[in-house]
Design a binder for these strands. Structure first.
Lengths: 175, 175
DNA sequence: GGAGATGTAAAACGTACGTTTTACATTTCA
DNA sequence: TGAAATGTAAAACGTACGTTTTACATCTCC
């Protein structure tokens, strides 16, 4: 595997498990098995590395959410939580740790959330039919965010509960 | 106002707006208008200060959630978001920044979440009647967490959407 | 009036931060 | 063959961290 990928994988793991600010460059280089010189050559700096990690995570996460029904959406999230664990939305965590004051990071975070919202709107449109139901899409988004947050202390069960709630809302929208 | 309260208020504001790790003791003392010697005398240290800030916030937040219906619960959250702003759950943010590795902090966070869950169970029991509906309470919890998270980028509208969704779920539980 | 508590201001503690530099080894490829 | 590219190891950059210490100014109240 190439150097950049090795770095991104190691960095994502450390950022996710220990936080962004708390993870120093020394720990990143040690985990990725490379010198700081190489890290700076490939990533540019710590801020750019965080942005790159988030960009890559966005790709990986959105690929998993390539589904055609609301129920499948929550099934995919449940899979994600079981495989990746639940430490809260990494994008919102990055945004919170930086106070939204780092444009390079804030941009990736807001881009991801916009894409997520758009994806959910698509899924709802396909699943419920009948044009677009903006209110329902917003509610599904909130259930997804809530499941992600609550899974930190409630585990995958939180996603199952969100899935059931979404089922009720979708059924009502279809009626 | 006494020194401790001044410190806690200033610290909560800085932690919330800029993150816990990113906020240094120098900035805390400057904002609170006191020397570091005084800060250490009253708070013990930065970790203990974070725990104290969270403990105080738990009191303040739970006092606001002293309501008797699910709809009033989300109305209270909407008030909170409009007054305090929406930067994500401060407890989960603290937990994420420390990787859950600081017992003093993890304890307050988990205590708060347990209290929140219990409070919601009470509200649901009173509002829906018919004994306790554990599944519904879990769904309301997830909507509340989701509204808190989504409000970061969707604003107070997210809480209104969660409120509407909760209304549907409660109506169905009553039927 | 004087002891004790409570505060400030400022320097210093050692450590760790993000980043750059120096010096050198290895690989790539015209 | 030899120069460019790509890597490591390690030291150094200045800054900021959390914390403690020293020295001094106020208050409070018996």
């Amino acid at each position: 595997m190439d150097v950049k990928s090795t770095l991104l994988i190691a960095a994502e793991r450390l950022f996710d498990r220990h936080g962004f600010t708390a993870t120093g460059v020394d720990r990143l280089t040690a985990a990725a098995g490379m010198s700081s010189r190489t890290l700076y050559k490939h990533a540019g700096g710590k801020t750019a590395l965080i942005a790159a990690v988030l960009t890559e995570r966005d790709r990986r996460f959105m690929r998993r959410l390539d589904v055609r029904s609301v129920d499948a959406l929550f099934a995919a999230l449940e899979d994600w939580v079981r495989v990746e664990g639940a430490r809260g939305c990494l994008f919102l965590r990055a945004h919170g740790e930086t106070g939204g004051a780092t444009p390079e990071i804030a941009e990736v975070v807001m881009g991801h959330k916009a894409a997520l919202r758009a994806r959910i709107a698509e899924i709802v449109a396909v699943d419920v039919g009948d044009g677009e139901d903006a209110a329902l899409a917003e509610q599904i988004l909130i259930l997804l965010e809530g499941a992600t947050a609550a899974a930190v202390y409630r585990g995958p069960e939180a996603v199952a509960a969100a899935r059931a709630a979404a089922g009720v809302l979708v059924a009502k929208a279809r009626a």
